[in-house]
Design a protein around this nucleic acid. Structure first.
Lengths: 158, 158
DNA sequence: CTAATCGGTACCGGATTAGTACTATTTTCG
DNA sequence: CGAAAATAGTACTAATCCGGTACCGATTAG
């Protein structure tokens, strides 16, 4: 299934909102209202994005958040890796095991780097600008009425 | 971070083991020993893979599992989607919400299909055959001694 | 008939995540 | 100068989900 945290989901939602705001500063509260997300969560995520340098923040009255770079220069990979915390695709390939319990077996099939790289490349090829364009040429109706079959057939799982 | 369940990790481990077995049937116990994985888990995963048609099973004494297709024709996407349960990258894009709570907002930024598709394509381009070749041209030493810096620098997170 | 092996279900403990609450700090505006 | 508005940070709680285990049934070879 290749899950992504809800935080990352929200993160993308928020970034697209900011991209559509065209440089107009948006407060956390405004974004939360607009996207119907819980404010504290939004606040938390915006903070993270700011610390990572993807957003600029302005404190005080009339303050808010703005994209730190043009939308075209921010990739989905950037956003996701920031919000999710960095690292790769499976426990074994992160830093936690200095000496992996299944070292020799892992060595035998050191495949995750390959897979990680593929995914990372894929995500990097998607810019925030693309994501911000509403529904332009969208091949799939995702929330279609008879989803069970439709979704299955078209958007083959990952 | 784009996590993958440990089940999927095991699934790939097992499939590569079977690919390397060259059509020789392997019992669940033998595979568990070889890869040092907990037997019940292995059993469970093999069952799933069999139901999905990626493996053929032979019951009874001297039974075991065999790849149902040549390794070259099985992709990482196949394995992962089978083991993880199907579907996509985030809760909102799976079947559970008939009418998504944030429908209009989702519509505004119906971006996950795009991302899912990109990842799926990436994973489909990796065949089990490739994954089974031990360490051939492996650009990254993953369990390297000074992992913290090495891993971070080379295998940028996803 | 017996042993080996796959097949399925139900269940538990622990880790992780989503979400909340509270407080401090900074800046604008009257 | 003071009050209000907004971000920044931290600590805590509740709920979900995942990995793992146990158990029993079904099937086949010898």
């Amino acid at each position: 299934m290749i899950r992504i945290t809800r935080e990352a989901d929200y993160g993308i939602l928020l970034m697209t909102a900011l991209a559509q705001a065209q440089g107009q500063p948006c407060s956390a509260a405004a974004l939360a209202r607009q996207r119907r997300l819980p404010l504290p969560m939004v606040s938390k995520i915006l903070k993270t994005l700011t610390r990572a340098g993807l957003l600029n923040s302005q404190r005080g009255a009339q303050g808010g958040y703005v994209l730190a770079q043009p939308a075209a220069e921010i990739s989905a990979a950037d956003i996701i890796s920031v919000v999710e915390g960095p690292i790769a695709i499976t426990a074994c390939s992160d830093e936690s095991h200095d000496r992996c319990a299944r070292q020799e077996d892992c060595e035998v099939s050191g495949h995750w780097p390959r897979i990680n790289l593929a995914i990372h490349t894929a995500l990097q090829s998607i810019s925030l600008e693309e994501l911000s364009q509403p529904l332009a040429p969208r091949p799939v109706r995702f929330h279609s009425p008879s989803r069970a079959t439709t979704v299955r057939a078209v958007d083959r799982p990952v």
